[in-house]
Amino acid sequence: MNIAYWIVAGLLALFYLYSGAVKAIRDRDRLRPMMAWVDRMPMPAVRALGAVEILGAAGLILPPLTGIAPWLALAAAIGFVLLQIGAVAVHLTGEDRQITLNVGLIAMTALVIWPATTWL
């Protein structure tokens, strides 16, 4: 079970680390081609989402790795599920109705939640 957690959590952490860094660094014009919803959000909110994704990625990996507050991995996984549910809502209310990636991320994160409970 630990191997499955590390594989899935590692992939999720890489995805969210990249996605969060892009949102935190790039301007609206460079984000628009890959994220059509940025025009409907204020940039401070986009930057905050990027920071949350970066912190969540660290939360999936560092607590179980170090053994310090390992319950944070569970909190990060639950937070990512909630984040993606919100992302689905944003996509469905806008012009771009592409939610396949979001649903896939919810499924992958749900796979991480159960093994993360073993460190509680």
Score class of each variant (00 low, 15 high):
M1Y: 03
N2R: 04
I3K: 06
A4R: 04
Y5R: 02
W6Y: 02
W6C: 03
W6G: 03
I7N: 03
I7T: 02
A9F: 00
A9L: 01
G10H: 05
G10A: 07
L14C: 14
F15S: 07
F15W: 07
L17P: 05
L17K: 02
Y18M: 14
Y18T: 07
Y18F: 09
S19W: 09
S19V: 00
G20L: 02
V22A: 15
K23T: 01
K23Q: 10
K23S: 05
R26F: 15
D27W: 12
D29M: 12
D29Q: 14
D29T: 13
D29S: 15
P33K: 10
P33A: 09
M34K: 12
M35D: 15
M35E: 15
M35W: 11
W37H: 10
W37L: 01
W37G: 04
V38P: 10
D39L: 02
R40S: 11
P42G: 09
P42F: 07
M43D: 08
A45W: 12
V46N: 04
V46K: 03
V46Y: 04
V46L: 04
A48I: 03
L49W: 11
L49S: 11
G50L: 04
A51Q: 14
A51S: 13
V52P: 09
E53A: 01
E53L: 00
I54S: 05
I54F: 04
I54A: 08
L55C: 09
L55P: 02
G56Q: 01
A57I: 00
A58N: 00
A58V: 01
L60A: 03
I61V: 12
I61K: 00
L62T: 01
P63T: 05
P63G: 07
G67C: 04
A69R: 06
A69S: 11
L72M: 15
L72I: 15
A73V: 04
A73F: 04
A75W: 13
A77K: 04
A77D: 12
I78V: 13
I78P: 13
I78K: 13
G79M: 05
F80K: 06
L82K: 13
L83F: 15
L83Y: 13
I85L: 15
I85W: 07
V88C: 13
V90N: 11
T93L: 05
T93M: 01
G94L: 00
G94A: 00
E95D: 13
R97F: 04
Q98Y: 06
I99E: 07
T100C: 03
L101D: 01
L101I: 08
L101F: 05
L101V: 06
N102G: 03
N102I: 00
V103M: 11
L105P: 09
I106Y: 09
A107P: 14
L111V: 08
V112S: 06
V112N: 12
I113C: 08
I113P: 12
P115W: 00
P115C: 04
P115V: 01
A116N: 03
T118N: 12
T118R: 06
W119K: 01
W119P: 03
